[in-house]
Each structure stands twice: as C-alpha cells, then as structure tokens.
C-alpha cells in the first residue's frame, strides 16, 4: 500500500491507474473559471437518490464538484445536505438501512459500483465532522495514526516531518509544537477541529468533506478554520455543508442550495434547487426558492 501515499499527492491531475478506480486524467487547468465546460470535476453525482429504509431522504441530485474549489452545500434543516455529503465518500454505508441509487463518480469511477472498497474511497476522500472528534490519544498519534493505517512505512523522522507538515497546513503547529505528547482532548474546541483537519490532511486525500465544521465553535475559531480552508483549497478540493449562509458566501467558490418538499405521503424529501458560482447565487439566484431562502423569508 506504500504507493497510496505516493500516488495521492496534491497533483490530482496525474492520478495513477487503480484497479477499482480508473482515473480520468482530463486537463483541469481552467477548472475554476468555468466548471461546467471544463468537463467532469473531482466528484460528480448523477441522478443520485439516497434512502434510509423506505424513506427517500434526497432525490435526483446531479452535481459536478470542480477541482481545487470550495463547494458549499446550504439549505434548511432536513433538506438532506449532510446526507448528500456523506454519500460522497460512502460514510452512509455505516448506517445499515442507507441505500444510494444513481452514480457518484470520483475521477470518473463510480464509487457505488459493485466491488468498490469503501475503505479505499475514504482514504482518498477525507472527512471532518460537525463536532471535533480527536482520538483519546496524543496530538502526535492523532495525526500519525491515519497515516499508519494508510500504509505509511517511512522512518520515525519521516513520520515527525509528516506530523509537523500536517499541523502546519492546519495552522496549528505553533500552538502545539511543545506539547505533541499531550492528549488531543486537552486542546480547545477550535484547536481540536484544526487537529481533526490536520489528521485528515495527513492521510493525503485529494478531497476533504466538511460537515458543518464550525457549528460547535466560537466566531474567532470559526474565522481561523475559514482562513484555513482558503489555504487548503490550493491543494485539495473541499466540499462543505454549512448552516451559516455568511460562511458559504465568505469561503466558497460555488454554492448549492437544497430545499425540502413534502410528498403526498407526508415524507420530507430533499432536492437540489441550484448549484451556481457563489457570488451569482447570493446576488442573482436563478430560482425563486433560493432567493426566498437567502433573503431570510424562510428556513
């Protein structure tokens, strides 16, 4: 597995051939300007439905997430934005009744195709959760652990470099460099969340999913995470779910607005209303529902 760490370098354009995930190394250089015309992005969903048992949580989601952008998913509670996020790296598999229909393409390969190992998906598409969840291990081990299970075989010195690099990328190094052996739980909430981001970064994914990463943090810690996301998008593609419209406006390149509708049986099913460049969505939304939501008329 040593080549995993090697191949998942920041340059996503030369993904290696993989038995389960055949790469589609299309030129992505102009991805940020015109994502629609640039061809497939890093992750693409096609007519994706997600069910929990008989309950259809989201219906018919087709989206194209561009390389090295921050994409924000917003919408009222229960609109399925977290469900969509968690289906992008098969975290929903952990819920026994969850089922995903349609396609989710990662570098062109369907991650829901039979025979795909969800563990391999999650090694490439990392995740940061709503509540900071460091392991009850030392700060150092919190970061080293993910790299170890991903087949890191370097020397002790290499591991130290990796940990330092990850902590620097997460803008946490200066605060913790003298207490790497202390428990990750000894840090403040904001520091813990940056530790979790460092931990995700250390496994060298190329996409990072963030599920309301700032909802448990104070405004100052939130600001730091936002700055961090802007730095990270140089190297990673980031997809973030947020309750906070200002946050989406501040950090994201493109924003998706989800809404929820009641069907005849009284089930609440979420659906994608529009997915547009962020400035456009907030200034001149295409849809009436989007405008109502961002102007605070509901939600």
């Amino acid at each position: 597995m040593n080549d995993t760490t090697e191949t998942l370098s920041v340059d996503t354009a030369d993904m290696p051939p993989d038995p389960t995930l055949t790469a589609a190394p299309t030129a992505m250089k102009n991805a940020r300007e015109t994502p629609e015309e640039a061809g497939p992005g890093v992750i693409e969903t096609k007519n994706m439905d997600v069910f929990y048992g008989d309950f259809k949580a989201v219906a018919d989601v087709s989206m194209n997430f561009a390389f090295n952008e921050i994409s924000a998913l917003i919408g009222p509670s229960g609109c399925g934005k977290s469900t969509v996020l968690r289906s992008l790296n098969r975290m929903n598999d952990l819920i026994p009744t969850a089922r995903t229909d349609g396609e989710v393409l990662y570098h062109g390969a369907n991650i829901y195709a039979p025979g795909v190992d969800p563990v391999e998906i999650r090694r490439r598409i990392g995740m940061v959760f709503q509540k900071p969840n460091p392991f009850p291990k030392s700060i150092f081990d919190n970061i080293a652990w993910g790299a170890k299970i991903n087949g890191f075989k370097g020397s002790k010195a290499d591991m130290k470099d990796l940990v330092e690099g990850a902590l620097r990328q997460a803008a946490l190094w200066d605060e913790v460099k003298d207490k790497l052996n202390e428990s990750g739980l000894s840090l403040s909430g904001g520091q813990q969340q940056r530790l979790c981001i460092a931990r995700a970064v250390a496994t060298q994914p190329d996409v990072i999913l963030m599920d309301e990463p700032c909802s448990a943090l104070d405004p100052i810690a939130t600001l730091r995470i936002e700055e961090l996301m802007l730095e990270l998008k140089e190297n990673y593609s980031i997809i973030i779910v947020t309750h906070n419209m200002q946050q989406a406006a501040r950090v994201s390149d493109r924003t998706a607005f989800f809404n929820v509708e009641l069907d005849t049986k009284g089930q609440r099913t979420g659906y994608l209303v529009e997915f547009s460049p962020t400035d456009q969505l907030f200034t001149s939304p295409k849809e009436k529902a989007t405008e109502d939501y961002i102007t605070g008329r509901f939600g």
């Binding site: 790296n89 975290m91 952990l94 563990v119 391999e120 999650r122 090694r123 490439r124 990392g126 995740m127 940061v128 959760f129 509540k131 969840n133 460091p134 392991f135 009850p136 291990k137 652990w145 993910g146 299970i149 991903n150 979790c196 931990r199 995700a200 496994t203």
Partner: peptide, 26 residues
Amino acid sequence: PNSLRQASYGLGASRLETSLRVVVPA
C-alpha cells in the same frame, strides 16, 4: 462515542482497525 468510530472510518480505517485500534484502546 460513535464520533470516534466515524473519525476512524473517515480516515479510511477498516472495521477491524477501527475496533482494535480505536474502540478497544478508548
């Protein structure tokens, strides 16, 4: 807490790695 298991799966750990190296130590 389940959040620890999710953190582990989110990093690409298998079920066995999560059980033996996250849940049991915790």
